[in-house]
C-alpha cells in the first residue's frame, strides 16, 4: 500500500522544523563579515582588477560562451562578404609537360661592309665643334 498524497505531504511537512544547531547564525555572521573584509582588501589595486576580470569570466555561463562564439562566427562571415578583396589575376594555362620550345630563326648579323665607317661620320676624341 502506498501512502496517500496527504500522508506524504504530512511526512514532508515535518522537515519544516529542521533548523541548524543553536549559535550557528552568530558564527555565520562573524565569518560573513570576515570574508567581506578580505574581499574588500583583495579588490583594491591591480590584483583586485585581475580578480574581477577572472570572476567575470568564471561567471559567464556555457550559453554565454556559445552566444559569443556564434556572434564571432557571424561577424567573420559577414566581414568575408562585405570587405572588398583585391583584383584576381587570371593564371595562364600551364604548358603541357611535353611542350617543346622551337627556337625562332636568328636575325642575320649586320655585315661590317654595310656600315659607313668613313671619316665624315666619325668624330675625333676631344674635338669640339662650335
Amino acid at each position: 500500500m502506498k501512502p496517500s498524497i496527504e500522508q506524504l505531504e504530512s511526512l514532508l511537512a515535518l522537515k519544516r522544523y529542521e533548523r541548524p544547531e543553536e549559535g550557528y547564525w552568530q558564527d555565520f555572521l562573524g565569518e560573513f563579515h570576515h570574508r567581506q573584509r578580505q574581499q574588500a582588501v583583495a579588490n583594491t589595486g591591480i590584483a583586485g582588477l585581475w580578480n574581477r576580470v577572472t570572476s567575470w569570466f568564471a561567471d559567464v555561463r556555457p550559453s554565454g560562451w556559445a552566444y559569443g562564439a556564434g556572434l564571432a562566427y557571424a561577424t567573420a562571415t559577414i566581414a568575408l562578404f562585405v570587405i572588398p578583396r583585391g583584383t584576381e589575376v587570371e593564371n595562364q594555362p600551364a604548358a603541357p609537360v611535353n611542350y617543346q620550345v622551337v627556337p625562332s630563326p636568328a636575325e642575320p648579323v649586320e655585315q661590317l661592309e654595310q656600315l659607313d665607317l668613313s671619316p665624315e661620320t666619325q668624330g675625333s676624341v676631344g674635338e669640339q665643334v662650335f
Partner: peptide
C-alpha cells in the same frame, strides 16, 4: 515527484 515519492515509500509504509 509525489508519484515517485509514494512509490519509493511503498515498502516501508506496508
Amino acid at each position: 515527484a509525489h508519484l515517485q515519492l509514494q512509490s519509493a515509500l511503498q515498502e516501508t509504509w506496508n
